[in-house]
Amino acid sequence: MIFGVTLKAQEPVAPVFPKMSKADTIRVASTNDNGMMIPWMQLQDVSIFAHRIWKSPAEQMAYNRLRYNVLKVMPYALFAKRRYQQLEEDIARTPEKKDQKKLVKQCDQEIKDMFNREIKELTITQGQILTKLIDREVGRTTYDIVKQTKGGFAAFSYQIVARVVGHNLKSTYNPNEDRDIESIIRTSGFYQ
Rank of each mutant, 00 (worst) to 15 (best):
P39V: 08
N34F: 05
T31A: 13
A92W: 07
D90I: 07
S30H: 11
F79V: 11
R52Y: 01
R93M: 07
M61G: 03
Q42D: 04
A80Y: 00
I38A: 07
N64G: 01
L66W: 01
L43Q: 05
D33P: 08
Q85W: 13
N34A: 13
Q85A: 14
P75C: 11
E59R: 09
E88I: 02
N64A: 03
K22D: 11
I91Y: 05
A14C: 14
M37K: 10
Q44M: 03
Y63S: 01
D90Q: 13
S21F: 14
L87W: 10
Q42N: 04
A77K: 04
P39M: 02
M20P: 07
I26M: 11
Y84P: 05
D24S: 14
Q85V: 07
N34S: 10
I38D: 02
K22N: 08
M36W: 05
F49S: 02
I26K: 11
F49D: 00
N34P: 07
A77G: 07
S21K: 13
V46R: 02
E88A: 01
Q42R: 09
I91E: 04
K55A: 04
E89L: 08
I26H: 03
T94F: 09
V28D: 06
D24W: 07
W40M: 00
T31F: 15
Q60W: 02
P15W: 13
P95E: 11
P18Q: 14
E88G: 01
T25H: 06
Q60H: 08
R93F: 06
Q60Y: 04
R27M: 12
V16S: 14
S21W: 10
F17A: 11
P95K: 10
F49H: 04
M41S: 06
S47Q: 07
D45F: 03
A23K: 11
M36N: 10
A92K: 06
R65E: 12
I38Q: 12
A58G: 07
T31I: 15
F17D: 02
W54D: 01
R93G: 00
P18R: 14
D45H: 02
A23G: 10
P12C: 13
I91K: 09
Y68R: 14
N32P: 05
M36L: 11
A58Y: 12
V13Y: 13
A92Q: 12
L78Y: 03
S30Y: 14
Q10S: 15
S21T: 15
K81V: 04
A23E: 12
I53H: 02
W40N: 00
A14K: 15
I48W: 06
S56G: 08
L87G: 03
A92D: 12
Y76D: 11
N64M: 07
P12V: 14
A77W: 01
V70I: 06
W54V: 04
E89D: 06
F49V: 05
M61S: 06
E59H: 05
E89Q: 05
F79M: 08
P15Y: 11
N34V: 10
F49E: 00
N32H: 08
L66D: 01
K55S: 08
